[in-house]
Simulated scan of single mutants.
Amino acid sequence: MKFPTALPLALALTTLSALAPSAQAQSGTTPPASADAARDALAKKDGEGDQSALLQQTLTAVDKQYSLIRRKQVAVTYDITYSYVGEERIVTDLANGSTTLFNIENTSSHSVTNTFSVDYGLLDNLTGNVTMPFISRYSDNNLSNGVSNSLGDLALGARWQPFEAKRDRPGLTLTSNLRLPTGRSPFKIIAGSGEATGSGVGAFTGGLSVNRIVDPVALFGSLNFTVSAPAKNLWQVNGTRILTRVQPGKTVGFGMGFAYALSYGISTTLSFQQAISAGSKLRFADGLEAKTHMQTSSLLNMGLGYRISPKTTINLSVGIGLTPDSPNMTVGMNMPLNF
């Protein structure tokens, strides 16, 4: 009869199992509650997203050409940009082969541009875009000073991704943009009547962009080419002559930069942009034709992105002009409106 001796053994094992947790706690093998709380505080929370998502949002803020949205989705973005241009220009005019006017003109211009942009996913790899800017501009020069408030040039664009985006290879996007001359044309302004808020001509831009995300860094670059339509049937007084036609030169632009995710909610960007424009051809009422010099505009941009929610990131940027043809300074903010 050995069964009675087995019962105390089973009872003893059960008692030891019940006492084991308290014994481990006293010996220190179970992590204390404070350590668990610290680990939970440092861990990424549900819905917080990852650095790759933040970097993609940062690229969108730098330039929409680096991102697409899904089919039938809508994204609305608001941008506000302030720019300052200060320069000294030498104004001359010729009549009968001799100089009739020569003076130094000090000019300063302050512009605030409010831009609303709407993106719509036509396909998973094709996104359409409409951009509507509202411009307020103040200029002070020897001839006049004042404020102009007007709609700027509307733009219709499309972005197409020919290859499926994958994490282990660069993303390629082809871009196109049609600019409509809806703003106040600089070729139709009478001296002292206000400032231009548009380019005065329609233009088409085609290009490509490449980006590669290597968490926590995103590298990006772009190349584009712009052709403008001529401004015809003009009658603008320009010194002693009357301007009747302008053919803007072609423009080549490129840019490059990187974004760095400091954390799950903070990112920084550094980028460089440059545009080289051929000289414009001018025609006057008396038959004279002239051509302006080539212009080069370069900007160095620095930005900071702050994620205030899993779907909303606010981006601030400061730009410094590097050439005489560039704005002296730009300050901007970008934020999505689909909270």
Rank of each mutant, 00 (worst) to 15 (best):
L101M: 11
Q295S: 05
P31W: 14
V62Q: 13
R241C: 05
N125W: 04
T30Q: 12
I242A: 15
G221Q: 14
V237T: 15
S150L: 03
S150E: 00
G86T: 10
L9F: 11
A95N: 09
S280Y: 03
G279W: 05
A196H: 01
N224M: 04
R89W: 08
A229H: 07
L234R: 04
F134A: 05
G200E: 02
Q73S: 11
P4R: 08
P31H: 12
G47Y: 09
L172E: 00
T127I: 11
G319Q: 11
P162N: 03
I90K: 11
L19M: 13
S263P: 01
N177Y: 06
L282T: 02
A218I: 09
S209L: 04
L11V: 08
L300E: 05
Y264M: 02
D46G: 02
N177L: 04
L178P: 09
T268A: 07
A53C: 03
V85L: 06
A25C: 09
Q24I: 13
V201Q: 00
I320M: 13
V227A: 14
R184K: 04
S271I: 02
E48W: 12
G321C: 13
S176M: 09
L172M: 06
N141E: 11
K44W: 09
Q26I: 07
R70M: 03
V227M: 13
L172D: 06
G206E: 02
T197H: 03
L219H: 02
L178F: 14
L68A: 09
A158I: 15
T244Y: 09
R212I: 00
K281S: 07
E87N: 03
L270T: 08
V210L: 15
D325K: 04
G287C: 07
A38H: 03
A61S: 15
L219P: 03
D46F: 12
T60S: 15
A53E: 07
S108A: 00
A33G: 08
A259F: 07
A23K: 15
L234C: 06
Q57T: 12
N114G: 01
G152T: 13
E289Y: 08
Q24K: 15
D119G: 05
N106A: 03
L9Q: 07
I135A: 02
M132L: 11
R137L: 05
T175G: 00
A10C: 01
A285R: 09
R245Q: 13
G146A: 09
D325I: 05
T92W: 01
P216E: 10
R71V: 03
N106K: 15
N114W: 07
L178C: 10
G265C: 08
S193L: 13
K45F: 10
T107R: 14
G249I: 00
T29Y: 11
M335H: 05
T182E: 05
A18Y: 11
